[in-house]
């Protein structure tokens, strides 16, 4: 799993209120990558070709989830990395930040139930040919936990049609929709395929102790892609 050659170096950003940054870093370590901590106020990224925006409640979710964090100084270099083909993965609050920043389409709204949901959810892999899902197979069913109050993905009918037609829906909730997301969307990629956001937490599903290791399929795919990008940046 760890392969040979240099480790994938992956930046993990901490915003004020992030709380899954440590789990993300730990999961990356277990998957053979080298997590590099980055603070939201940093104006430059370390020498990486991949970044994780972890879950949590950046800036207390004030105004709208992710709305304030998108203006953090570190978002400038992240925008540039994304534009340059680098890999960006936003988990939960990270997904919300990427939508607010315009790096991903759509918006995340309060759950239909108005309740915080915290449980394992079944997911279907819609696309196995992305840097974030290459270790999966198409239509594979995964079990990964969600824990959020504002995970209801919204896209108007025009945007939704565009996402569906261009195959940018990567993960969908299977069975009961935990938050009312349109078309049961749990994860999407940008048009170029190098930026992904998802509400479920793969970093909480890498150890059999917590019930499922399906998260390692997603993060492992990301680590593989990051390693390729580290050794051959031009190939991204």
């Amino acid at each position: 799993m760890t392969g040979t050659g240099p480790k994938a170096r992956i930046a993990v950003v901490t915003f004020p209120g992030s709380n899954d940054d440590r789990d993300a870093a730990l999961a990356l370590e277990r998957l053979g990558a080298e997590p590099v901590p980055v603070w939201h106020a940093d104006r430059e990224l370390p020498d990486v070709r991949a970044v994780i925006l972890p879950g949590g409640f950046s800036h207390g979710d004030y105004l709208r989830a992710g709305a304030l964090a998108r203006f953090a100084p570190v978002m400038g270099p992240i925008q540039r990395l994304a534009a340059d083909g680098g890999l960006v993965l936003g988990i939960c609050n990270g997904f919300q930040i990427l939508c607010e920043a315009g790096l991903l389409p759509g918006a995340l709204r309060p759950n239909h139930s108005l309740s915080f949901v915290c449980r394992d959810v079944p997911l279907t892999v819609e696309r196995a040919d992305t840097p974030f899902t290459a270790r999966c197979t198409e239509r594979q069913r995964l079990s990964i936990p969600v824990k959020h109050g504002e995970g209801c993905f919204f896209a108007d009918s025009e945007l939704l049609a565009e996402l569906e037609e261009s195959g940018r829906v990567v993960l969908r909730y299977e069975g009961e929709n935990p938050n009312g997301s349109v078309a049961a969307i749990a994860g999407v990629v940008n048009a170029e395929g190098n930026v992904m956001g998802l509400m479920p937490h793969p970093e909480h599903a890498v150890d059999p102790l917590t019930g499922s290791t399906d998260g390692a399929l997603l993060l492992g795919s990301f680590v593989d892609a990051a390693r390729r990008a580290t050794t051959a940046p031009a190939a991204v």
Partner: peptide, 10 residues
């Protein structure tokens, strides 16, 4: 308009 508002509904 058209955006579901669960708070409003409650």
């Amino acid at each position: 308009p058209g955006i579901l508002d669960p708070q409003g509904e409650a």
